[in-house]
Design a protein around this nucleic acid. Structure first.
Length: 264
DNA sequence: AAACGTCCCAACCGCGAGGTG
DNA sequence: TCACCTCGCGGTTGGGACGTT
């Protein structure tokens, strides 16, 4: 197919960029919410229907990308761990720039994430030899990591609450007497009394105890699966002895998680 | 303090593969 | 077989945050 053919097909299939009204650029919390609602109802795929069915002024391609790279609930956010880095290096040696192939070996990581990580951490090294290994850059990296760890800890707290609350939301139909107030109050109380966990162990225990306080929620294996699925990334930290919390540290993530109840 | 450089990541773009009628 | 549609992939860009000079 010629370039024009491809472009024409793409314009038709993914929604014409010439057509009026397609939004571009950063996603808003409201758009995220609409997209998550759409996926909840219709599942992944049929991305071109999103605009029509969800009332989003985004083309299908943009919606898919946003979901895959950012909104998917199974995403593992936060810094790449040393173990993951090792895997990336090994797989890149084997596969080259086949990021999606590499990403499949790193659950919760997206091809985009790995691609970005590679570009910022390794491409220069390959190009410019060991110049980047100076003490200066190491110190800089350390400082940055320390800062990010702090941020991540805060975000993990948010993560716990949001994951927990979303579970409550999912079960609201089964638990008729589950006042919104309780959810809000427990969140507020935990936040204000600083009772959040400080280590990965505490973290897991904390969430689990909170979960058990609402025993109705945990009664079914199905919900436990959902719950523990949300905690899987903590195991990685245990294995690595790394207390990095798996939450995005960047501004966009903070922004999204701050007021997007579906973000986790 | 300000200019500049670097890091980082979300998002976009172009393209190709595979499916379908 | 062909045209079109849908989806996914890899490359690239834009821009904010942060660090350095």
């Amino acid at each position: 197919m010629s370039n024009w053919g491809v472009m024409a097909a793409e314009q038709l299939s993914w929604g014409s960029m010439m057509e009026e009204g397609w939004r571009k650029g950063p996603w808003t919390a409201e758009e995220d919410r609409l997209l998550i609602e759409y996926v909840k109802l219709h599942g992944e795929g049929r991305w071109n229907s999103v605009a029509r069915l969800a009332g989003l002024k985004r083309n299908g391609k943009s919606c898919r990308l946003r979901w895959v790279n950012y909104l998917r609930p199974d995403l593992k956010r936060g810094q790449i761990t040393p173990n993951e880095e090792k895997v990336i290096i090994e797989l890149h040696a084997r596969w080259g720039n086949r990021w999606s192939t590499i990403a499949r070996s790193l659950p919760g990581r997206t091809d985009n994430e790995i691609k970005n990580y590679w570009r910022t951490h390794f491409k220069k090294k390959v190009k410019g030899g060991s110049s980047d290994n100076s003490e200066k850059s190491k110190a800089r990296l350390l400082r940055r990591q320390q800062f990010q760890q702090q941020q991540q800890q805060q975000q993990t707290q948010l993560f716990d609450m949001k994951k927990f609350m979303s579970l409550l939301d999912e079960t609201d139909s089964r638990v008729p007497i589950l006042p919104q107030m309780i959810k809000q109050d427990s969140a507020a109380a935990a936040a204000t009394t600083n009772t959040f966990p400080n280590s990965a162990d505490d973290h897991q225990i904390f969430v689990y105890s909170m979960f058990n306080n609402y025993s109705t929620v945990a009664e079914t294996a199905n919900h436990e699966d959902i719950f523990w699925d949300g905690l899987w990334n903590l195991d990685d930290h245990h294995v690595n002895g790394n207390i990095n919390c798996s939450i995005a540290t960047n501004k966009a993530s903070l922004h999204a998680s701050a007021y997007n109840p579906f973000y986790y």
